[in-house]
Design a protein around this nucleic acid. Structure first.
Ligand SMILES: [Mn+2]
Ligand SMILES: [Mn+2]
Ligand SMILES: [Zn+2]
Ligand SMILES: [Zn+2]
Lengths: 146, 146
DNA sequence: CGGGAACCTAGAACGATTCCAATTCCTGGC
DNA sequence: GCCAGGAATTGGAATCGTTCTAGGTTCCCG
């Protein structure tokens, strides 16, 4: 269920583009974006901070927060919240929910069965405008291979 | 879509029962429960704290948090999270999601159309165990009467 | 080359929630 | 009823993810 958006966003392995979605790229934003595209395990801001230091030893945590906020605001990545835990970040822009596997803490993207429109199965009054849907699940996936 | 659970939980207007769902009732827990059952607008812990002082002038915020946590742990009320905002609390135990009306900040329960089982429309591997589903929407309801 | 805006950074500040230690309240057994 | 032990409540301190602030750096454009 990986949509081919290679023509929408630049390859994270190529050269840094001048901008993405109207957001001017900087070294720090580009590396943040690259990291999320490469390691799609829904890292927290702090995870990103620790991992990104290999490439940008002088980056600050505040900058990681700034970059993530900028990327989210421009619709380049998504912010995912589980209860009151630290926010996580996801580069998958397709409509999907998140499954939190409690047996090992991993988080997985969940899509809907073909032909399903979530807004269609909801009991909402005529004329309701939905700007955002967030679906989170908790449980255990089968045959959990750590 | 209001399920008749009047036989499951005591009337919040009656006498304080010795316990609910195995949770021993105290003055503070009972008033917290009553308040949530009476004012179903999904108040935050702080909202509960401010409102409950009319009946319990000496209650502390820590106690409100303690009571809410106890009620949640015993499945008497539910905790609802919107992004990183303060948690809200909901006495509706039926399966439902939450619609956040951005035009006035109000929060409304959302049920599914009859016959819909949310776990059935998800693309999950065989054998997945779902222990909890959380659905939150943002948008505008029609003809918003402030 | 400058000048101004946008960015980055370190550290302080914030705020919802949790923790802590002391006090008060309950309850079951005498 | 009265007491001891456990549970609950309380006010204040601590926590911790996130946001804010102030100063330094870089980028953009003329
Ligand atoms: Mn959530
Ligand atoms: Mn949420
Ligand atoms: Zn995702
Ligand atoms: Zn609700």
């Amino acid at each position: 269920m990986v949509s081919d958006d290679s023509n929408l966003h630049p390859e994270p392995s190529g050269k840094m583009p001048a901008e993405i979605n109207g957001l001017r790229m900087t070294r720090q934003r580009w590396e943040t974006y690259r990291l999320l595209m490469t390691q799609k395990d829904h890292p927290t801001a702090n995870d990103v901070f620790r991992r990104i230091q290999k490439r940008l030893p002088n980056i600050s945590l505040a900058t990681v927060y700034n970059c993530l906020e900028a990327l989210v605001k421009h619709g380049i990545v998504r912010q995912v919240n589980f209860d009151r835990e630290p926010s996580r970040f996801c580069p998958n822009l397709a409509e999907h929910g998140h499954f939190h596997d409690e047996s090992n803490g991993s988080i997985h993207d969940v899509t809907f069965k073909p032909g399903i429109d979530l807004s269609e199965v909801l009991d909402l009054p005529e004329g309701t405008v939905i700007t955002d849907i967030e679906l989170t699940l908790r449980g255990k996936l089968p045959t959990t291979k750590i």
